[in-house]
Design a protein around this nucleic acid. Sequence first.
RNA 1: CGCGGGAUAGAGCAGCCUGGUAGCUCGUUUGGCUCAUAACCAAAAGGUCGUUGGUUCAAAUCCAACUCCCGCAACCA
Length: 471
Amino acid sequence: MSKTYLCTAIPYVNGNPHIGHAMDYLLADVYARFCRMMGDEVRFQVGTDEHGNKVFSTAQKNGVSVDDYVQMNSDKFRKFIKQLDISYTDFIRTTDPEHVRRCQEIWKRLENHIYSAEYEGWYCEGCERFVTAKECEENHGVCPDHQKPYQQLSERNYYLRIADFKDKIRDQIEKDTMQILPEFRKQEVLQLLADAPDISISRPRGQLSWGVPVPGDDDQIMYVWIDALSNYITVLGYPDQDISTYWPAQAQFIGKDILRFHAITWPAILLGLGLPLPKHLVTHGYILADGQKMSKSIGNVVDPIEVLDKHGLDAFRYYFLRHVDTFTDADFTWEKFENAYNNELANDLGNLVQRLATLCKKNGIRGVINPTGEDKKYIKLMQNFEFSRAFDYAWTKVQALNKSIDEQKPWELAKTGETERLHQVLEKLACDLLVANQLLTPFLPTATEKIHSIFTAPDIAPPETPLFPKN
RNA sequence: CGCGGGAUAGAGCAGCCUGGUAGCUCGUUUGGCUCAUAACCAAAAGGUCGUUGGUUCAAAUCCAACUCCCGCAACCA
């Protein structure tokens, strides 16, 4: 039995869970369930990123202690992940003392590749942050939020020398030792890598108080990178424990907005530690609301909880795993969602279960033995992380079953009294349904479990209420 | 001239590498069936395959130019 480790990006806890986070979890979960189906032992990390100024100042604004604030927000994500029925095994918080200590240890081990330098740039006192030269220019040198002119300021930062690792990173990406999916993202990364600068990995304490202190320098706090990225290995116990059973990760699931950090910064850290790179970086796109990017200012943000409440978890997973392409941006509209639920989940699958179970019950078919077998095409699609296509493929099996029932007309066999033939036909159909059901299991864990128990029960009978009721 | 991707039926996509009657899913219309959640099955309508030119007996497919859209372009957790 092989051991598989899967990672998801850890969201920053200064906001509520949104649909983009759900995509990370869903993709990783489908793959996790698939791997378990294939007999792997899966370790599956999720977590929350909890340091940084935004969290600190929001806590203060709301008059709560920062510890309580991050606890509260981390719990929101924990609850969200539960609601999505994500089969994770490890939940990490970057404020976990073990994580903090391990980060400091990792920093020490990277010291050959870390140097100190002055950073100079445009700074806004109100925002307490530097802005890019471009942003400064766009705002004509004045911060729009605070109506104060930006100042030239310099501060001392520690930097991670990316140049030390560029060639190795390039090599591993080109050879797909670390495979970036989809392919066009790989091209983007290779291009970025050519001019990748060293990365600032600390801030003076005065700038950033809520974070992991740099070991050996009390004036500096680690800036996000080493703190957040290293969660993928600290959760396994690095460097206290040997992590080679699980590391390198089979796959890390991320949104396109954070690809560069996972494809350049993270590999640099790993190489600096002498660790192998993750085998796959699976990058999904954005969910658009009716063709537009979701944003608070436009006010078109679709709340995942609202979608969940509408028709339940299976419907949620169905839409975002089948009708949202695994790798590219895709659209969500309520109309499409309703359409998918009513005409595909309810009519194709729900109704199929209903009619076949009814036929079996009327004709006294006993529970079918769960068939075993491998579907090569399906396995290949899943192994290539082409989940929406694999789901499509599995669905063709469902549709074929509806067709097959119509063609074989078991109700006519019942009328003409061809009992033996009738039983054969129905048992074969039930068996085929279980085969299709198996392919759907990673995508629709709840519904497939119900279907499985219906057709393997000693007496097959339709569910009390339809699997996907329509109103 | 930054790099890259794309333009195919109302929507979303495949086909292009290896030219030869244009295909899938959803939606629409009609017919059939009755085991089933007014569900299911079948058939039909709907595209001059972004534009122009070239190569060829033959171009969605190869070549060139053009138009339009989109992704990426360093502190975005």
